[in-house]
Each structure stands twice: as C-alpha cells, then as structure tokens.
Design a protein around this nucleic acid. Structure first.
Length: 884
RNA sequence: GGGCGAUUGGCGCAGAUGGUUAGCGCGCUUCGUUCACACCGAAGAGGUCACAGGUUCGAGUCCUGUAUCGCCCA
C-alpha cells in the first residue's frame, strides 16, 4: 500500500530526519542473541578524539559502512561498534594549549580546579605561561576535553550515515580499556613476552619520552660535515667526517667497511681522539658506508641507530654523555677524567648538544684538529612523528613486548599470520611482510607521559633506599585496573610509598598502540563478557588506512597471536589516500583540508558517500567535488524515478493504491527482458561485494539504473499509465508490476551507497527499514523473466534512440509526432523490436506507419543505436503543451 | 638505494584467465521549457592506451628496460 509519495521530492533534510528515526527505532542496535555464524563483526578504527576528522576519515569510514550495510542486508547481525582513541600525547598537547596548563606530577591535586583558558583558538600557550597542575587534575582536563570532542565526532558520523550501534562506543582510556590493556600486559609478563631492559633507545628530548621504532619518521635535517683528525702514534692522522663533533668525547671506535681498501692497514690498530686523547680501536663492519663522508666513521654511544648496531654487534663499551633532557652529563666521565680533555669536558657539561657542538668545534679549530671548514649537508635524522627535534639515543629502563624483532621463530609465526589474513586489496600484504621482516628490535611500550594506561607495576624499595627494578610487584588480575602512582600494591599502605622497605609505582604509561592493539579484545569483551566474546571473536573485518599497517594492524596481530593464539580477524580492508587536485596527499600542514561537516551539508551525505564509494579499496582517490555532484544527481534521480514508478498504480482521486509485486503478473516480453537484466546485475553486484569490491557493485547497479530510467521507463510509461486508471489491462499490470519489482530491487542494491535517499523512498510504500530488507538474489528475478533475454530491452532501447536521433538531428522537440518512418534493424534484433513495437511507437510518438525492415549489407553502425537506421521519416508539428 | 602501486580522450575512472572498429561519467558542441526529474532530457565530437624493445597469428592486457608521480622502508 502506498502511504504517501510526495508531490515534490528532495534530498534536503533527509539526514536529520532519518538519523533521528534510526536512532528512535534502534535500527542498527546489535542483537547479541545471535550466534557466531550469524554475526559479522567489525573492528572499527577509533579515531584520535583530540585530532580533527578530515575528508580521509569520511572516505575510509564510508568504505566500512558499505560493507556493514551489505552484510546486514545479507542477513548477518552486524557488530559495528565505534571507539575513540583519546589516550596519549596528542590529547596532552591539545589540553595544554586548550586550557593553558601543563602537568607537574609533583604537585598535589586541587579540588574544583578551573583552568586559565577555555580554548585558545588553536594558538599555542607558551610553556612559561602554562599553569602547572597535578597529574590527576591534568587527567581530568584530558577527560573533559575528549568528551566534548567525541560528541562532535559522533554528530559527524551520524550525519554521514554510519550504521554504527551508538550504544556500543568505547574509549581507549575507558575503564574497560585500561583493565584490558593491563591484564594483557600482565599476561605478557607472566609468559615472558614482556620484559624490561636497560638499553639504548630513541628519546625525544622535547616530550621527555622514549619512542618506538614504529613512531619514527626520517626527515631531512640540515647539518655540517666536520673533518676531524684522529691521531696515530707515529703515523699520519686519520680523518673522519662527522655531523656531530660534540660526541667526540663519547667515541668508542672508528669503523670502516671491511672491503674498504683505504683502511685495511688500520684495522686492528688504535687511534686517539682529538681534544680528549682517548684511545679507541679501528674496526671493520659492513654497515659502514664507504662513499659516505670519509668512509670511516666514529662510533659513539650513541649518535644514531647505526652506532647502536655497532655497539651491540662489536661489543663496544658504553660511553654515554647525553642526558634525557638533551644536555651533556654533569659529571666528567671516568674515561676522560684526568686526561687532556678534562677541563674542556667541564666546559661543555650541562650544555645542550647544540651549544656543546659549537664549543667543541672552537676547540678543534684551536688545536688544529679540524681540517678545513665545516661543509653544509642535508642528512636524514630520526624524528618522533609528532616532535620537531631530532631524537637522541639514551640508555634507560623501559618495558618491551616481543614482536619478533629479536626472535626469528616469533617473526616467522607472525609472517604466517600475515599469510592467513585476507588483505583487500591483496598486495597490501607486502607492506605487512616488509615491515615484519625488517624489524630490528622488540616493541618498546613505556612512555614517560601522563594521559595513558599506567604500566600496572610497583617496585620494592630496599632497605638501602635503592629501587629493586628486577623484582616488580605485579597486581592480581582481579585488582585491575590499577594506577600504581596513586594506589599501593596489595600488602602495602600508601604511606610506605618511596620509603625503604616500601614500594614505588611505575610512573610510566603504555604506548597508545599498546592499548589500541587490543581493540578486538576491548570491543568483544575479552574475559569481561565471555558471552559476547564467543559471539564476535575472532572478528570478521578490520578496516584501516595503509599507513598504519606497520603499527595498528601489525600490533593487533601480535597481541591476538600472543594472547589468543589466533588471527584477530579474517579480513583487512585497506583504504587509500585522498589526494588533492595536485595529486598531493591532503594534510593539515599543507592547508588543503576541507572540513567534512561542511562537505556533507553542502553536497548531502549520499553524494559524499557516492564519491567515497567510487574509489576502490587501496586506491588513492582524488578529492573530486564533481564526483559528489554525480552522487547527488543519482540520489535525486532515485527519488524522482521512484515517485514516477510508484505513481502509476495510484487512484487519481485518493492518491492511494496497491503496488503489486507478483512476478506472475509480468507477462510482457519487454518487462521480462528488463527483469532478466536486473537479475544479471544483482548477481554481479553480489559477487563484487563478496569480493570487497564495492566500486564494481556500484558501477553495475548504477549503469543499469540509468538505462532503466532512460530507456525502460520511457518505453513503458504510456502502457503503465494505462489511461490513468487504477486498474488496467494485463499489459498495464505487467508494466506496473515490473516497475515495482525493479524499484524494490534497485533500492536495495543502492541502499548501502545512498542510505538516505533509498530509505526515504522505502518509507513511501514499504514497512520497516530498507537497511534490514533482504539483499536481492537473482533467482526470483530470473524466474519472473521467464527466459526472456536482457538484450531485448537493449534492442527496444536502440529502436527508440534511432527515432530520437531523427528528431534530434531535425532539431525538433521529442514531442514531435512521427507520421511515417522505416526502421531498419539488424536481423538478430528484429524479433525483439517487433515484440516491443507498441512501446517503441508510444515512446517515440509514432502516430503513423512504422515499417520494420532488416538492415541491408553495410547499412548502419553497430556502435550507433545498435546498427538501427531510420529512413523515410515524416515528422509532424509537436502538439501544443497541455495546460494545467 | 630497496619495496609496493600508478601512468588509458581536457578532468576523474573501468577495462578477470591477451582475440573483431578501447568503454563509462564529468566537461564540451548542437538541440529540446515532454505533465518523474532543468540538481533534466536527446543527439554528437573527442583517445597512435607514458616511452622503447620483446613474446605471439594477434597486447591497453604478458616479459624486459626507461621515464614521471605517489606511498612505505633504508
């Protein structure tokens, strides 16, 4: 029963109206009574709450929603929760700037603290002007701001039409997440997969935190090569070229490539460092690059990662002089003490590496050990991806989780997991394999930050007052979550904190990835909701960007492999980048981002989704407003064509009527041909979706839909109209029924892409949501087609086009009647055109004779109207337009 | 330097297992105020498939190399 086809249709306002309806009716609520085989579970990426969403998010999250909606219509109960990644440094930095505060863990908590600012329009508050607050106050501010951010994010996602169950949201720093991350860590610890080590590691002096390999970014950094002489007893000096002369006091060896002819005679001998007179060996190692600088390098503890490699592989002594704050150590090291350079070291101690470099260069110049002037160079330096100073390498005590970086067996197991995972597109697997194969260390998870999941450990304080790091106090699992900086371990009281015989809490938090790598465990209720866990884990799909295969995807595989012994999901769907019109990756720093909400408001959500859907997984896509306009037209066409197709059965007086969907009523050959085509389209779209190829599914559906509108609808409109009666001849009923069946099918096929327009149309004449309607299958359509050939519609369409062409060339209205014409048709299509000739005549306004003949040899061009040719055409005057 | 991907009419893209005259959309040209739609419709023009070799009866499609672009890792 038609409930109401509006007189005028519009896409405007559909987003608010339907989001509200879906919300009220809990359309996308997860029904957890379903069993694992009936469920399709999605491990959605939690966006960084303190960041801002950009077009790339809209793009990739749409890809996920297409799958979610498709699977839901296929009858799966879709588990599609949304999370917010709010822990970590990005939030801390945003809070510092937004509220004008900074965290000082030594301060006490202040009740009802109000920060000096409430948003500073993105301007940075200078560190000197930031009000220091306690750790707990700082964390409260973090929580306050992320809550606001999350609400904005949800609004955007709702407007975009993500079919998420909004009652299932989680935060990477919510209580469940903390408990999960801590429990997983404690388990890793118990199994020996987590360990602490005092080791050289990358250190960001600005943020005062250790940084993991996955967070590195190599950037060009300007520097100077300094040609520096190392002395040889009774020989020529050896010149090295270094960009970091301030590390000369930390030198432990000179190293050249074993095959380097120039240095063969030096291997096994020793040289002495300039200024400091420290004797160091000359050694051979393959990592020395003969064509870089002088080909012989000084190895310090530690100038860069190669130094660490040499230090480890050549078992060199540790002579570290750079502290965590990026300054030279205060104490004169024992290997310099009493030597020639003791006074000089005293000068540079406490300096930043930059000032120390100046001082050392001056000293080298004075001593004559600097050959020539420093030469400017661009070198690659390691940066923390969010930092702006090159990383230093300092030795510190940190926690690690094994990830195969130092263990061949585990690496092989993880590579095998990669092979088990279905990547879409498949070649993205290579990125995983390259990354896993190239790891050279375990995963450092300690972060010396505040807003994160605390490392759930305490350490005993010995009678001597020293902290016993070797014997951490581990909480029982049922105590979790814990905050060791504010809670005492079991068996202790808070007043024993820091006292001999008492304890100290680990002050560090975990790396963000150490929590988000557990997103499947967090959303699926691992050891918290066993019932849910059994229903949704291992999950079906992990959608994400290609840039975080090495981080998020890999770390999630690591955690599930270690904890659960399985792959966390069956499929990984990888979305590409959004490129601006200059083919550059869109990013905030380049100033070429577009605010997603504005985009959705301007073009409509269906339109923006269409643009996103027209890019395949893994393929970079251009930010193309034109593509959105096409999507908008498609959505409007769906509304208009539906209104038209549904109008035929209506009583002109009441505006009501019955829409028939009985396939047996489709008796006319042309109608059956259309359904045959639709059956093929349904089959292809389904196959494409099953292969995670949403673009192909859209393309075949969309192409058919336009043909349906331009040809079929035009051909049958007169017959379907049936002189304007509510009931009609069998032919009229056939057309009306075929239109309704086609519409019913097309709306479903388009529903994942255009959730708003299709739902709107659905509401005019069907009950429930189109998003819970069954995905169409080809068989019923095929049986309704009763063996008709889809090409018969093509033939009739070509016949109509041939007639239109005559009018177009005569530059006359399509309403002009054809008083007489001969239509030559290729033999193969003659029967088809003949069977549809009544519809062709009506649509072409042929009022006189229409003679059908077979095309002669050489007549017509198959590319033009299927080789059909009109001749002997007599056109009449167009009828005057009917008034009102 | 290594890896992955891309290179098809002005623009954005399709083109499984190689097979007759290479498709689609936008834009463009011409025409049409048709009562579903002017956020429209009809007709039309437009490409030596980056380049150079090779395999083949036959290559946009396979192989080799080169160039340009993007991303990732050194």
């Amino acid at each position: 029963m038609v409930k109401g086809v509006p007189d005028r249709v519009s896409t405007d306002g559909l987003e608010e109206k339907l989001d509200a309806r879906w919300s009220d009716e809990a359309t996308f609520a997860f029904d957890r009574s379903k069993t694992r085989e009936q469920i399709y579970s999605i491990d959605t990426p939690p966006p960084t709450a303190s960041g801002s969403l950009h077009v790339g998010h809209v793009f990739s999250y749409t890809h996920t929603d297409l799958v979610a909606r498709y699977k839901r219509m296929r009858g799966y109960e879709v588990f599609y929760p949304m999370g917010w990644d709010d822990n970590g440094l990005p939030t801390e930095r945003r809070v510092q700037n937004y509220y004008g505060v900074r965290c000082d863990p030594s301060l006490p908590y202040v009740e009802d603290f109000e920060p000096p600012h409430q948003g500073t329009d993105g301007k940075n508050v200078k560190p000197a002007d930031q009000v220091p607050v306690s750790r707990r106050n700082f964390i409260e501010l973090c929580e306050r701001l992320t809550t606001e951010d999350e609400q904005k994010f949800e609004q955007l996602w709702r407007r975009l039409g993500l079919s998420v169950d909004w009652s299932q949201t989680y935060q990477t720093i919510g209580a469940d997440s903390i408990a999960t991350a801590q429990k997983a860590f404690v388990r890793n610890l118990a199994r020996g997969e987590a360990y602490q080590a005092e080791a050289p590691g990358l250190w960001d002096v600005t943020f005062q935190t250790a940084v993991a390999q996955a967070e590195l970014e190599a950037r060009d950094y300007p520097g100077h090569y300094h040609k520096v002489a190392f002395g040889r007893p009774g020989g020529e000096p050896v010149f090295i070229e270094t960009t970091r002369p301030e590390l000369i006091p930390a030198v432990v060896a000179l190293i050249a490539h074993p095959d380097d002819e120039r240095y063969q005679h030096l291997f096994g001998t020793t040289v002495t460092s300039p200024l400091f007179g420290v004797e160091v060996p000359v050694l051979a190692h393959h990592a020395a690059e003969p064509d870089k600088g002088a080909g012989i390098a000084m190895c310090c503890t530690f100038g860069d990662l190669t130094d660490v490699q040499w230090w480890r592989e050549l078992q060199l002594p540790t002579r570290s002089i750079v502290r965590r704050d990026g300054r030279i150590t205060r104490e004169v090291p024992e290997w310099i003490e009493g030597g020639a350079g003791e006074a000089l070291f005293g000068e540079i101690s406490g300096m930043t590496t930059f000032s120390a470099r100046k001082a050392i260069v001056e000293a080298l110049r004075a001593s004559g050990d600097l050959a020539g002037e420093p030469v400017a160079t661009q070198r690659k330096a390691n940066f923390y991806e969010k930092g702006d100073k090159p990383l230093e390498i300092v030795t510190s005590r940190q926690w690690y989780i094994r990830n195969g970086g130092r263990d061949g067996d585990l690496r092989d197991e993880l590579l095998a997991r990669g092979k088990e995972l279905d990547f879409h597109p498949d070649h993205m697997r290579v990125r995983y394999e390259n990354w896993v194969g190239g790891l050279n260390g375990d995963w450092l998870i300690s972060r010396q930050r505040f807003f994160g999941v605390p490392i759930p450990l305490w350490y005993p304080v010995l009678a001597s007052g020293d902290v016993d790091h070797e014997n951490p106090i581990v909480p029982a699992e049922d105590q979790l979550p814990v905050d060791p900086t504010s809670q005492p371990p079991a068996g202790f009281t808070e007043d024993q904190r820091g006292r001999p015989g008492g304890f100290v809490g680990d002050a560090d938090v975990m790396d963000t990835w150490a929590t988000s790598s557990l997103s499947p465990q967090i959303v699926a209720g691992w050891e918290r909701d066993e019932d849910l866990w059994q229903r949704v884990f291992p999950m079906d799909l992990r959608p994400q960007g290609q840039d975080i295969i090495r981080t998020w995807l890999f770390s999630t595989v690591v955690r599930a492999h270690l904890e659960n012994g399985v792959l966390p999901w069956k499929n990984a769907a990888i979305s590409g980048w959004i490129l601006d019109p200059d083919r550059k990756k869109m990013s905030k720093s380049k100033g070429n981002v577009v605010t997603p909400m504005d985009l959705l408001v301007e073009h409509g959500s269906d339109a923006v989704r269409y643009w996103a859907a027209s890019a395949r997984l893994g393929a970079d896509a251009a930010f193309e407003v034109g593509q959105m306009k096409i999507g908008r037209r498609l959505a409007i066409k769906v509304l208009n064509a539906s209104k038209f197709a549904l109008s035929f059965g209506l009583d002109p007086e009441s505006g009501e009527g019955e829409i028939l969907l009985d396939p047996a009523a489709v008796t006319v050959e042309l109608d059956r041909a259309m359904l045959a085509g639709l059956a093929a389209v349904t089959e292809q779209a389904t196959a494409a979706f099953e292969a995670y190829d949403h673009t192909r599914a859209l393309e075949v559906t969309e192409t058919f839909f336009w043909t349906f509108c331009d040809d079929y609808l035009e051909l049958v409109k007169d017959r379907a109209y049936g002189a304007g009666t509510a009931t009609g001849s069998a032919e009229t009923t056939s057309a009306r029924t075929a239109l309704a069946i086609a519409l019913d099918t097309l709306l479903r096929l388009l529903a994942p892409y255009l959730p708003f327009a299709t739902e709107e149309v659905w509401s005019w004449w069907r009950t429930g949501s189109v998003h819970h309607a069954a995905w169409p299958t080809p068989d019923p359509l095929r049986s309704a087609a009763a063996g008709a050939e889809a090409t018969n519609l093509t033939a009739a369409g070509n016949a109509l086009a041939a007639i239109r062409k005559v009018k177009s060339e005569a530059k006359t209205s399509m309403r002009a009647p054809v008083l007489a014409a001969t239509l030559a048709v290729p033999a193969a299509d003659l029967a088809a055109v003949r069977s549809a000739v009544g519809d062709v005549r009506a649509a072409g306004r042929v009022t006189g004779d229409l003679v059908l003949t077979e095309t002669a040899e050489g007549q017509g061009d198959l590319n033009v109207q299927g080789g059909m040719v009109t001749s002997g055409v007599e056109l009449g005057e167009p009828e005057p337009r009917k008034k009102g």
